[in-house]
Design a protein around this nucleic acid. Structure first.
Lengths: 260, 260
DNA sequence: GACCACAGTATGGTCTGACCATATCGAGTC
DNA sequence: GACTCGATATGGTCAGACCATACTGTGGTC
């Protein structure tokens, strides 16, 4: 076998990324610290400013830097920690490309949310965000409003699990299908069933019952996405990724049904 | 309240991304299709080539396009479906920034792998990749080699679940900690225990026993990362994300122990 | 006709240098 | 002290050039 890959010569901007990464690790830079200006960085690394800028676009996309124009302490490229934005863009684009199906996304969400709810029920985290979101959902007058606070509710569950990676995934899974969620709520009209589920989920978490919380989440998502959970389990095509041009199309699927 | 956000004027390259995204959705472009050349795209969208290039860097980072130089049918920007690369970079950088901890990453991996194994045991997917990987692990002479096929084994489980998003997550969770895994295997020396676990996992999946598969995965990861699973559950700080400058540091943690 | 050498050309990759918009800083003024 | 307004540093954008790469097509050679 000997999986030989055509060695593409490292591009200048990739080198810049690597150097910045080294600097983060080496100098112990953390969130909030500033990077040198683009011109200065270009001179230091002996590349053009364009290459530095392309590197910055990548780092910005990945949610590790944020660029501000102007002058002063807040200007320039600052290290940040915003993984969810990247994940959201990634999911949205791959959904658009049909390299991921809505079914797969919802399925992943079920996994994450069941895990989060069970974990949150296990240790007494701060759950006031859950109540707040429920209250705001009750007062919501538009579908857009409802979905916003609904997202806040479900993200709060993930945050209560104590795992920031899981929380970021939850937020991006929600945000990437935000459009469909709003449409679905508008189509649905009555959100009473969803709210009943919400209260049951919160109750299970508050009372510290992991398996009940997990079950309540499943009930909720089955109500919200009846089309997707029609069949007991999904069985899509495997392998959707790197290593050896593993491109593969995705079967067309229905985007649909309610929010959650 | 009224969460006002400073409305940053859309940058040219962001507009380019949006237009390309529209074109993907509108023209029904799919994986394998080519985008116009950078110069042509710049003229069409009335921006400079630099802006087009910055947009391409973002799309490349997100794994939806791949650029080849030269001329011919394969040259230029081609739509691809490689979400795992982006996820890997994201995790690696955020780990470096300590905006995610190794503990959180391993924890997420446990969740994903338990789910995958259970799902894979549920429906009879092709499991030959599992056997292949096990065989190659047995023949591996270096830690690097072992980890490569070990990764293949665990990714194969995720792929057998039938969910490409989950599979991509699995691959990136593994790849992002590849360095630590290799070091850990070198330190460990004997991989016999890990291999025993592997066979048990495979056996449970093959015989269609979801709960046994899930349990075997947990056993395996507890062996591989004793430091992380010392406590029954993790309870890291919540909230690691967007919306309102939610930057927060991460406590320092041990990067450690064996692979899996 | 089959093969090969080579010029042509379209592609991304990089660089330079300029100018703009924005936001702070700081000297000068009232 | 408060205000005004130019200086300045920052990212954002543009135009135009040149390079390396890799296919295309042409024309010659056998």
């Amino acid at each position: 076998m000997s999986g030989w890959q055509p060695v593409r010569r490292t591009r200048a901007f990739e080198d810049v990324i690597a150097r910045i990464e080294e600097r983060i690790a080496g100098d112990g830079l953390t969130v909030g610290d500033r990077l040198p200006g683009e011109r200065q960085l270009a001179e230091q690394l002996q590349v053009s400013r364009s290459s530095v800028r392309e590197a910055m676009r990548v780092l910005e996309t990945l949610g590790v830097v944020s660029s501000q124009v102007g002058r002063g302490p807040d200007a320039g490229a600052v290290l940040t920690a915003r993984p969810a934005g990247a994940l959201t863009d990634l999911l949205r684009l791959h959904l658009g490309l049909a390299s991921l199906s809505l079914e797969e996304v919802i399925d992943a969400r079920l996994m994450i949310e069941q895990w989060s709810a069970a974990r949150a029920a296990g240790h007494g985290a701060d759950l006031s965000a859950l109540s707040d979101a429920l209250e705001r959902m009750d007062q919501a007058t538009t579908a857009e409003d409802f979905v916003e606070h609904d997202t806040a509710f479900h993200v709060a569950i993930a945050e209560a699990s104590g795992n920031r990676l899981i929380a970021a995934m939850m937020r991006s899974l929600r945000d990437s299908v935000r459009r469909y969620a709003i449409e679905a709520v508008e189509r649905l009209g009555d959100t009473g069933g969803l709210m009943t589920d919400h209260h049951l989920i919160r109750q299970a978490i508050v009372s510290g019952n992991p398996s009940e919380a997990s079950a309540a989440v499943e009930t909720h998502l089955r109500r919200a996405y009846p089309d997707i959970f029609r069949t007991p389990v999904t069985s899509g095509p495997p392998g959707a990724d790197d290593r050896g041009r593993g491109e593969d199309q995705a079967r067309s699927e229905d985007r649909g049904r309610a929010d959650g």
